[in-house]
């Protein structure tokens, strides 16, 4: 017998999986359409809101937020200039599209991820079950999500939001869980000892105490959404990512560099401004 060969091989019927997903798409067409419409509504509302705001208001807002968080007007102005730079090279509209996908994905992630994080922080059993799922979500190559997302929701921004949410929801779940579990056990004991109900202890003590960690989770979710949204351009999500993709396909180095830099600037802005939250909260502590 050849010691380098497996004794036998199982052929996985990958086509059956394809068929199953397709059948699922057909059977649950109504539900999927509803989800699609809902997400579209969310996306359009976000984008409309962003478009209504004149560019200079947004720039000033960023200057103000930057100043408020660091206490230095210089930093605020630098942040404002970064955003201004994106607009001045003609990528303002695309940036808003990207931003709206990120905002929608992060909103969904937080809305779903925060309660899941709370749940697994209170139950070791749920934690044991959810952890491998989270590991899978984080390590599965991102393109693999894109395929079923396209099958179920078609091309465009909606599947992009779904895929981005799946990828970006993990940190908010993990860090909410961690934050709640790391609250000083004596403080939790104190909450119990004074006759708090479980929800009182959670709302009045555990969540506020875990707040900086939870906010760090939101920040991480935001950054991962930003990273994913570029990849998601492969399934037709418009925005800065699409611009990068086009320049790759056409081997246009200059165009790629400009749009790529715009992605980086936007990412840095989102990171710094959202990190400001956590720090502000930490100082209260």
């Amino acid at each position: 017998m050849d010691i380098y060969k497996f004794p036998f091989q199982i052929k996985i019927d990958v086509e059956a999986i394809d068929r199953a997903v397709r059948d699922f798409a057909v059977t649950f067409d109504v539900v999927l359409k509803m989800m699609r419409n809902g997400l579209n509504g969310l996306l359009n509302a976000t984008q409309t809101l962003l478009t209504i705001i004149p560019w200079w208001v947004l720039v000033l807002l960023v200057v103000f937020l930057g100043y408020k968080q660091t206490g230095k007007i210089k930093t605020g102005i630098v942040y404002g200039l970064m955003l201004f730079a994106i607009g001045i090279v003609g990528l303002w509209g695309l940036m808003l599209t990207t931003l709206s996908i990120v905002i929608a994905s992060v909103a969904l992630s937080v809305l779903m991820g925060f309660p899941i994080g709370l749940l697994i922080s209170t139950s070791d059993r749920a934690n044991r079950w959810v952890r491998p799922i989270l590991d899978t979500m984080q390590t599965m190559p991102v393109f693999v999500y894109l395929i079923p997302a396209v099958l179920l929701f078609g091309l465009g921004k909606t599947p992009a939001v779904i895929a981005t949410t799946i990828y970006a929801i993990v940190p908010i779940i993990r860090l909410t869980n961690l934050g709640i579990r790391q609250v000083d056990s004596e403080v939790v004991e104190a909450a119990k000892a004074f006759g708090s109900t479980k929800s009182q202890a959670m709302m009045k003590v555990q969540i506020p105490q875990a707040w900086p960690t939870i906010m760090a989770g939101v920040n991480q979710t935001l950054m991962m959404a930003m990273a994913m949204v570029v990849t998601a351009s492969m399934i037709g999500a418009a925005g800065l990512g699409m611009e990068v993709l086009i320049s790759v396909n056409r081997v246009e180095v200059g165009r790629g560099l400009v749009s790529g830099t715009a992605v980086v600037l936007l990412a840095i802005l989102l990171d710094r401004l959202s990190q400001g939250w956590t720090k502000e909260k930490k100082e209260d502590v």
Binding site: D184, E186, V187, E189, A190, A193, F194, P208, Q209, V285
Partner: peptide, 13 residues
């Protein structure tokens, strides 16, 4: 019944 803790158990927020 009420309790006082070794490391105070105060809520820092």
């Amino acid at each position: 019944i009420a309790m006082v803790f070794q490391n105070f158990g105060l809520m820092s927020h």
